[in-house]
């Protein structure tokens, strides 16, 4: 069979108007695909690498869009556009970390079309995997990116387990740092995951990025009020200032009192197959002053045990410095 790319094959399209209807379609068909903004999906379809028979497009499911108060926090529908997340006054004023991260995603056009849920569950950008190579993540037996000669400057420096791909979702780190919960529905009911448990590394399941299985829908993201108004720090390092994924990014929520760090929640992304919450660092810096020494200690601890590949050693100091900046309290 000859290979052809960049030309979408046909599939059956469903456009349900409710979650129940969507779940029903997913339940009734095999080889399904859930389509949100389509920015990740279309690439796969066009390259004919992921070939669903049935595509369930969620654009008409109104219960999945919108941002509303929930307890002392917010609940954001998974289909809410990144633009709406960025523009939302509550998000900006109380959970600016998410607004900052969402505002850096790709380009304005992509933020108009792309959704929060889609950004979170996007597949990795490992170019071997996305090139249709039969790697572990694609059900094969080899990680082509992890060999001594591979081109892996954008790959993982930690958390590798056969697969060395990274999670590239800009909003993922921010939601981990905000202690968000992911609400998942399937025909079997609703499940709730802590943000950091929502993402799955290759040691657990090498073919998925999140806990979502066929038939599951991420419906909402709940952000508790715990970190509202904390000092936030978001930064992404990348090759271009737009339409680029993070070489490494940091998201931090830090509460200080009298010049010392009272509590903190920090995540880095772009360095491992999942966003990495830095609980050790959070413990370390508690009660310490927010300054460069603390930042450096935090950065060193965060990157201890990192195992760079042939071309990505630079990610070690990069991640260290991003954590350092987040902790020492740079203006983002």
């Amino acid at each position: 069979m000859a290979v052809i790319r960049d030309m979408m094959p046909a599939f059956e399209l469903f456009q349900p108007t409710s979650v129940d209807e969507a779940l029903d379609v997913l339940e009734r068909h095999d080889n399904t695909w859930v389509l949100a903004g389509g920015l990740d999906s279309m690439d796969w379809f066009k390259d004919r690498i992921k070939r669903p028979d049935v595509v369930v497009e969620l654009g008409s499911v109104s219960e999945l869009t919108g941002i509303r108060a929930s307890g002392d926090g917010l609940e954001i529908g998974a289909m809410t556009s990144l633009r709406d997340v960025v523009a939302n006054e509550d998000v900006r004023s109380r959970f600016g970390l998410l607004a900052d991260a969402a505002a850096q995603v790709a380009t304005p056009q992509i933020r108009n079309q792309g959704t929060l849920g889609g950004n979170l569950i996007q597949d990795t950008r490992c170019w071997y995997y996305r090139g249709g190579w039969p790697c572990y993540r694609a059900g094969g037996n080899i990680c082509y990116a992890g060999t001594p000669r591979s081109m892996n400057r954008e790959h993982a420096v930690t958390g590798q387990s056969r697969c060395v791909a990274v999670n590239g979702a800009d909003t993922a780190g921010a939601l981990v740092a905000l202690g968000a919960q992911m609400l998942v529905r399937s025909a079997g009911g609703e499940r709730v995951y802590e943000a950091e448990d929502f993402f799955v590394g290759p040691e657990i399941d090498i073919e998925r990025m999140t806990v979502l299985e066929p038939g599951d829908l991420l419906t909402h993201v709940h952000i508790p009020g715990d970190w509202a108004g904390a000092r936030f720090y978001w930064e992404t390092a990348r090759d271009r200032k737009s339409w680029d994924w993070a070489l490494a990014s940091v998201a931090a929520a830090i509460v200080e009192s009298n010049g010392t760090i009272e509590r903190a929640r920090i995540a880095i992304n772009g360095v491992a197959p999942t966003p990495v919450r830095l609980t050790d660092v959070e413990d370390l810096i508690q009660g310490m002053p927010a300054n460069d020494d603390t930042g450096m200690a935090a950065g060193e601890l965060a990157t201890r045990g990192f195992k760079p590949l042939r071309h990505n050693d630079y990610k070690v100091p990069l991640a260290r410095n991003l954590v350092r900046r987040a902790v020492r309290g740079d203006m983002a």
């Binding site: 000859a2 290979v3 249709g132 190579w133 039969p134 694609a138 059900g139 094969g140």
Partner: peptide
Amino acid sequence: APNPWGQEV
């Protein structure tokens, strides 16, 4: 699966 050169392996 097709290998990187499109050959089924």
